[in-house]
Computed example of a mutant assay.
Amino acid sequence: MSNTTADGFRPSLARRATAALAGAAALAGLAGLCAPGLAYAAAPPATATAAFTGSAADFNDCPALPAGVDRARWKCEVHSAAPRLTMGKVTVTLAPITMTHAEGPMPDGTDGQVWGAMHTTPTAVPGGLTGTAAGDRSRPLRLAVQPEYGDRSDFYTGQFSLRFRMLSPLLPQECVVGASAPVDFRLKRSGPSQWISQDPPLIEFSAYDDTFTAPAAEGCGPLTAPLNRRLGLPATSGNLMSYDATYTFRAYDRLPTP
């Protein structure tokens, strides 16, 4: 009988990793990842609307506009969502993601967009590296996912790209799902948008994508193959992003001039 789990991690790996972690962390620069609460705390329940309650949204990430455009006809949009993500064999509710971009007409009349910034925090992956209770209990075996902007977006059509950095004391910082090519999402609306407030403007919408392909993790060192078996990657089907979001906006002529 094999003593290898379905995810490709032998039970002895956990014991060896735990015993060796203290020395390895000092040598490999992983000690900082073991700080209490960093990267491994499960995200608390959150809604996208929470990002904008209590005070006006943060417009500090509004990007500079292209030359020659009319500032009054361009708006800076800030939207926040706590997506539910199924990718391969893992399902998580990601910590809230906030994205900022600008859009408006170009001098020739075509639609223009400028990317601003993205902010989020890591989310714990239940079961950690092993997919078992031991992966939740043992700090060295914990696993978190950190979404990062994938350098492509088109908010007129609901398309954007993300990479997912996998964080664990046993993984190098270069361990990323979508390292060579990011994960491309093409969101479809689940229903009509709903105005929550007119002043300030606050709008909710729901969207999803169940057609995206999830690539394998790369750059994960000796654990690359076991990690991909654990995550069920690559996965060409069965993936889902549910995207319940809230957004607000402000015309550029109402923003401070840089």
Rank of each mutant, 00 (worst) to 15 (best):
Q159A: 12
L240C: 08
T248I: 07
G150P: 09
A25F: 00
R250V: 15
F212T: 04
L129N: 04
T121E: 00
I203K: 09
Q173P: 06
V176G: 10
H101Q: 04
G8M: 05
M99K: 15
R250Q: 13
F249V: 09
G37N: 05
P105L: 07
R137E: 15
A50W: 03
N60M: 09
A225H: 06
S190G: 09
P122D: 01
D199M: 11
S237A: 12
N60A: 15
S153N: 11
L170H: 05
A46G: 06
S161I: 06
A214F: 01
A82P: 09
G112T: 08
L171A: 05
P122R: 06
T257M: 13
G8H: 08
L231N: 05
A81S: 07
V78E: 06
V78I: 13
D58Q: 06
L233A: 04
M118E: 04
W195A: 15
L65V: 03
R254K: 15
P258Q: 12
A217V: 02
G88S: 02
A28F: 14
N228D: 07
S153Q: 13
A19K: 14
Y243W: 15
T157C: 03
P140M: 12
A95N: 11
F155G: 04
T100S: 13
R163F: 02
A46L: 03
